[in-house]
Amino acid sequence: MKIPYYPGCTLKSTAKHFEISAIESAKKIGIEFVELPRWNCCGVVASLADDDIMHNLAPVRNMIRVLEMNRDGLVKDEKRLLTLCSMCFNTLSRANNRIKKKSDDLDILNDFMYKEDIDYDGSVEIIHFLEIIQELGFDKIEKNVKKSLSNLKIAPYYGCMLLRPKDVGIDDPERPTIFEKFITSLSAKPVEWNNKNKCCGSFLTVDNKEIVVELGNDILTDAKNSGADIIVTSCPLCAFNLDNRQKNIKAKYPEFKEIPVVYFTQLMALAFGLSKEITGFDGNFINPTKLLKSKNIEI
């Protein structure tokens, strides 16, 4: 299956290991990501003010690219746009839902983009990689597992953007299960914990580091107390706040014990027996290699 793929900025820089592990694992289950030609930044956060039409421009331009891909034969009748980054997923989805509800906004945007070949019509659907996996069936993952992760207890961290608000969320906002099913299909054990959908502080990390340090300490401590060896995420901003910021947490709370935080696709690539270059654990701030070795999982 060939599907239009939107990487977003961070997956081309600090989260390269997220992208590579996803693309290569997807191939194993028969999905080919076709990168959107001329994609542009989604803007990271959704436009919230009722009169703020302009900030929907960037998301909508990407949707026009999906229509062009269909027109040009890069994909066949595939108007779903696949995302990996939770923030991109959320921002693109919210813009799409907004213009579907407010046709006046869409008219204004199309008018503004008169140089585009195609008018946007609201027909693109934004989806997350986890949703495609669910649709294909988790057994497809199970069948491809070459390296057992059964010794590994994984805390699924959903954060905010995969689940909220309700009209974009991929699962129940309070009791999601999609990540748990994914982890189980990888042969690992999902950990039940309280903070799986608690906010990590998001962009406050820029000007309110202390808030993020407190939230991170709460979230990570809960994961450890619940028996987790490692945490998985699908958001590069959560990854920064929960992984890189452990250095700041440790500076404030010296007794704090580190726990690795990785992208879910890295563990997928690991379980599928893909190479070190593809699992990309060198890209994580806290490298999980030592932990994995202690669980008898060879990298």
Binding site: C9, G43, V44, F203, L204, V206
Partner: peptide
């Protein structure tokens, strides 16, 4: 800081 943090913060603040 990754750009996802910077762009997000500048958009909001």
């Amino acid at each position: 800081l990754p750009q996802i943090a910077l762009v997000g913060a500048f958009r909001r603040l």
